[in-house]
C-alpha cells in the first residue's frame, strides 16, 4: 500500500479498516488493521457499557457485548468524547431483534441517557423551599436546572434504575408494572432518578415548556396534591434558584 498523498492514503487505509479481511491484502497488513479496528471497537464498547450499566445488568454481559458491537458498527463514534457516546442507543435497542421480547429496555436506556446528560450538565444553584419563604409569585416562570430531565416511560424504567443502584433499598420484584414519568436531577452533585406522581409530572412538564408557576399549578392541580408535588420537585433540585426580576442564579 504505497500512497504518498496523505489524503489518498487515509481514504485507502480507512476503507480497509472497515473491512480488514478484504481479499488480496498481505497478512501483516490484515493483522495490523484488525488490531486497530479491535482497539477502537473495544474503546467504544467499553464506553457504551459504562454509560448503560442497568441495560447491561438486565440483559446479561454476553448479550450486551454482542449488542454493543452491533451498535458500534452501525453507529460508530463521531466525536472523541467517548464519555458522551451512545446518545442513540435507546432507539437502536428498539429495533434490535434479539431483545424484541424486552420492550422496556428502550425506556431503561432513555433513563440512563438522561442520567449521563445530568451527570455532565452545567453547574447551577438549585431553588429550595426557602427561596419561596416570602410567598410564591404565580407570574414567575421557573427555569429547569441544567441537570434536570423529565423522562416519560411506558415501563417503570426509573424504578428499575433505582433498584439497580448499589445502595438501593428498592426491590425489583415489588415493581408495579405501569407507565412512569421520572425526574433525573443532580442535587448535591450526585445524580438521582425519582418516579414522579401525576401532579408533579404535569407541573414539571408545564414549567419545562416555559409556563408560569400559576399555569403550571393549574396543570398539576388536576392530578393531585399540588403543594406536595411542588416541594418534592424543589427537594429534588429540579429548578434553578430564582432571583429578583425573573433572573436565575
Amino acid at each position: 500500500m504505497s500512497l504518498s498523498d496523505p489524503k489518498a492514503f487515509q481514504r485507502r487505509f480507512g476503507a480497509l479498516l472497515a473491512d480488514p479481511t478484504a481479499a488480496g491484502l498481505e497478512p501483516a497488513l490484515v493483522r495490523a488493521l484488525t488490531i486497530h479496528r479491535n482497539t477502537a471497537t473495544k474503546a467504544a464498547v467499553d464506553a457504551l457499557g459504562e454509560n448503560y450499566p442497568v441495560v447491561r445488568a438486565l440483559v446479561g454481559e454476553e448479550p450486551f457485548m454482542a449488542c454493543a458491537v452491533e451498535y458500534v458498527s452501525a453507529r460508530p463514534p463521531v466525536d472523541p468524547r467517548l464519555c458522551d457516546y451512545g446518545a442513540s442507543f435507546a432507539d437502536f435497542l428498539a429495533d434490535y431483534p434479539p431483545f424484541v421480547e424486552l420492550p422496556y429496555l428502550r425506556d431503561c436506556a432513555r433513563v440512563e441517557r438522561a442520567v449521563i446528560e445530568a451527570l455532565f450538565a452545567a453547574d447551577a444553584v438549585p431553588a429550595s423551599g426557602s427561596d419561596f419563604d416570602g410567598g410564591i409569585d404565580p407570574g414567575l416562570a421557573l427555569q429547569l436546572h441544567p441537570a434536570a430531565r423529565r423522562v416519560h416511560c411506558s415501563a417503570p424504567a426509573g424504578s428499575i434504575w433505582r433498584a439497580h443502584q448499589p445502595d438501593s433499598l428498592d426491590a425489583l420484584d415489588a415493581l408495579a408494572w405501569r407507565t412512569e414519568d421520572c425526574l433525573v436531577t443532580r442535587p448535591a452533585n450526585a445524580v438521582q432518578v425519582l418516579p414522579l406522581d401525576p401532579a408533579a409530572s404535569a407541573f414539571l412538564e408545564a414549567a419545562a415548556a416555559g409556563r408560569t408557576i400559576g399555569e403550571a399549578a393549574e396543570a398539576g392541580a388536576e392530578h393531585g396534591d399540588l403543594a406536595a408535588a411542588f416541594f418534592s420537585l424543589l427537594a429534588a433540585g429540579a429548578f434553578r434558584r430564582p432571583l429578583d426580576a425573573g433572573r436565575f442564579l
Binding site: F9, Q10, T39, P76
Partner: peptide
Amino acid sequence: THHSDFLPFP
C-alpha cells in the same frame, strides 16, 4: 467518524 485508536501514516 472518530476511530478511537492511533492510526499510522507514511
